[in-house]
Design a protein around this nucleic acid. Structure first.
Lengths: 258, 258
DNA sequence: TCCTATTTGGTGAAATTTACCAAATAAAGA
DNA sequence: TCTTTATTTGGTAAATTTCACCAAATAGGA
């Protein structure tokens, strides 16, 4: 969505391309150096922030739609998006919400008010996690800003999006026990301290610095390389890499960490 | 849906009451005496069986809709339905499917073909488990039959419903480790042998007859009563009951069994 | 050479899981 | 009444995993 005409056309004719009544909203978590952040964006005509979201094309499957939506809105590519829950109910979008009224002002009241966009919509929730230092979100025409928010300073969001953030974080934390999600956040070669920090930060609790990496090694999820990293006046840590085979097996079977 | 007029009206005007493009499909598992079954039904005009499903009213939230749909189609009440995944994509419903063509014949081709029901639909998957000996499913007007099928003899179902069965069973088995689902399948007072059989049957694997109940007792999920049951010429087993408090706590925190 | 900060090998205790034996027991049949 | 049979249940020892934490190794700078 990069020109005004495209936007107008979307409001009037979008229902021909997209399936009405159904949207996808994505909670994109960003990790870097002991910090966990969430990507929030603000749409034209809205006062409050929201999660990046959009509609599903009639030719797409759900996972592809989620990937495309994130790419369009934030220019982030290559995310491993995970469906976690679908939200619905008549209370999801409130007609007398100040933001909804605001939106109507921006593009003539009637046009939006009577458009397919304003009908009741259920939303499929997806989440993903990435390294926020490697990713510069780029807002498109419809999105005014698009930024990383500290996870414990997420503002009051539109609709039921705060609930989505809470439930997606729960899902992410649960998944962390079953899938080696950290692979998405680390370079090919990493130290035990780095992977330890990721798990502590995402789970929001301390994990023993000795026992936790030992378990990862014991399970065979990571392999020690014959290589060290220079970290100044301290003992140089060994570097490790993920074991692709065991990783794949863990994805199928599930593993309990922590 | 109990009269023909209601059905005709649903086809023509249903989109005013229900949200189009979105349906709910429920995988209802039934357990009794070492057997696991699945509830399947056959709709008027269709050759193949399918999962009980329906549409969401504009005034309902998703969980309530799932409960109502099961009640309408099968007359089963009081289920604890659990959302597990949403299915979508252009491949879900095939236009040249023999069953779809069959359906069109039943109520004049054009009427159905051009109705809101034939537009692309995503489906929200729910599952539940109940004791199939206590429940007599009652088909409504739209549903011709409604019966329990052995879990390993489920026939070729409509659309992507076989995939739904597979994924809902996976979800159920995973949940079994976190939630004391068996409470729904047992009388207030039960023996260790009974609860042991439920877990073995649902998980499809053997669990040690001594260690498994010991763990349930150790966790405090069940309490021994001062009561035994007469089972003929054998040692009378003690009866047990669920510990509502611990059960509630387990629901929040999650517990690993098995 | 010493100091500092960090990584990592190791260990013993505690807890949990696993495998499995044998005693208890209820009622039917001899 | 005694034995038999099928089942439940108490118990235990070994194996494994988790947990807490110490101390050695080490890299570069002072």
């Amino acid at each position: 969505m990069n020109t005004l005409e495209e936007l107008e056309d979307f409001i009037e004719n979008g229902y021909k391309t997209y399936i009405p009544h159904i949207s996808i909203d994505c909670a994109i978590f960003g990790y870097h150096d002991h910090q966990l952040k969430l990507l929030i964006s603000r749409l034209k005509g809205f006062d409050r922030f929201c999660l990046p979201g959009g509609y599903i094309k009639r030719t797409e499957n759900l996972d592809d739609a989620a990937t495309r939506i994130v790419e369009e809105r934030t220019a982030i590519t290559g995310l491993y998006l995970q469906q976690y829950k679908t939200f619905g109910g008549p209370e999801r979008i409130k007609w007398n919400d100040p933001d909804t009224i605001n939106l109507m002002k921006v593009h003539g009241y009637e046009k939006i008010r009577s458009s397919w966009l304003m009908d009741q919509t259920i939303s499929i929730g997806y989440y993903a996690i990435t390294d926020f230092s490697l990713v510069k979100p780029q807002p498109d025409l419809m999105t005014i800003t698009c930024e990383w928010s500290d996870i414990d300073k997420v503002p009051d969001l539109l609709f039921d999006h705060n609930k989505m953030v809470k439930e997606s974080l729960q899902a992410l934390r649960l998944q962390l026990y079953y899938y080696p999600i950290a692979e998405k956040l680390l370079p090919k070669k990493f130290s035990l301290t780095e992977i330890h920090a990721i798990y502590e930060t995402i789970l929001g609790k301390t994990l023993d610095m000795r026992n936790f990496p030992k378990k990862l090694i014991f399970l065979g999820l990571i392999n020690r390389l014959n290589e060290k990293r220079n970290i100044g006046p301290h003992r140089a840590p060994y570097l490790y890499s993920f074991n692709a085979k065991k990783y794949k097996k863990a994805l199928e079977k599930g593993i309990t960490l922590g």
